[in-house]
Design a binder for these strands. Sequence first.
DNA 1: GTCTATACCTGGATAGAC
DNA 2: GTCTATCCAGGTATAGAC
Lengths: 196, 196
Amino acid sequence: MARKLGSHSEITGPRITSAATTLIARHGFAAVTMRQIAAEVGVQAGALYLYTPDKQTLLFDLMRAHMEELLDAAAAQDFSGPPEAALEAFTRFHIAFHLDRAEPVFVAYMELRSLTPENFEALERLRKRYEETLTAILRRGAADGVFDVPDPAVTTRALIAMLTGLTTWFRDGGRLTRDEIADLYWPMVRGAVRPG
Amino acid sequence: MARKLGSHSEITGPRITSAATTLIARHGFAAVTMRQIAAEVGVQAGALYLYTPDKQTLLFDLMRAHMEELLDAAAAQDFSGPPEAALEAFTRFHIAFHLDRAEPVFVAYMELRSLTPENFEALERLRKRYEETLTAILRRGAADGVFDVPDPAVTTRALIAMLTGLTTWFRDGGRLTRDEIADLYWPMVRGAVRPG
DNA sequence: GTCTATACCTGGATAGAC
DNA sequence: GTCTATCCAGGTATAGAC
């Protein structure tokens, strides 16, 4: 298994993704240059094109990978219990996952408009699949009469916006721990759908 | 009141602001060029520099103007009634104002990272002043025992994120009217802070 | 797989005519 | 106040050596 000196394919690929995510989260896609990404990784700009055909594809692959991880992680959860327990599980899962990955979350949310129309559509489909996880819980609770949810699609977006908003200001090592945050948000989510 | 032909100072200024806001909301600050803005207004790129010293200042002035309008509009409201009535008034005001100005709202939220550090700080101060309007209502309600708000700063951010999230998907002429939206959101806000 | 070098283009911003 | 013309820095992407 001899390997040429200076050959780091399995190392450099992930490092490009990671550096690009950090830089794009901080400065925005259009403001980040291929040279900056390359410098962060420690290679020359031209070397990036061994890993991606162009800058747009680099962004899209990054965003898609993030959304697929999110969907996989959600699929691994058990949201089949009573609606209230399922809603709490979803709330805590969503918070934990999103705080764990503040940078890709931020990119996936902020850079939708930087995608080509086809790539945008593909990502929207993934996002909607994730939203459907929460919508299903809300519908079950409404059917059981334990939730008051006149419009599950609207409530889904409202709750996800509330929870995801966390990532714009929460910082580890601040006044509150992640668990304290989840303990503050869960009663708000619960109350927002509680009848009367 | 003779005016030189081709002199449109009072017309062109606002048109630049408006065109820049639309383009930046759609494509992002870094992706929009001075030439694009000029073309939208119907002048040449060089002419923009009669109205702004540089691109960064154009962005900042736009965002600051928006935040000042928001603060002025909030100051003109009466949030001095009983906490629950004040919270409902704030909710409906916030929704109405933000749906009326989807583009500047989007820019003010998404382009914070495109500002220089000094400009960022200035805008953050304005944003915090606005948040304080809601925090004050929440504190009053908590003191009266009509709201359960263990952490007013966190609840403020959670509620504002929920309400502002609307602007990313609401479109006039869609399934729901603005009033229907407000009637869906107010009970969620109320429930999120309702005791037990 | 990576580097150096570079083609080619478009960006922000300015100068000077009108 | 606006236009035309232009400077020059820096962008993406490619070619060819190693």
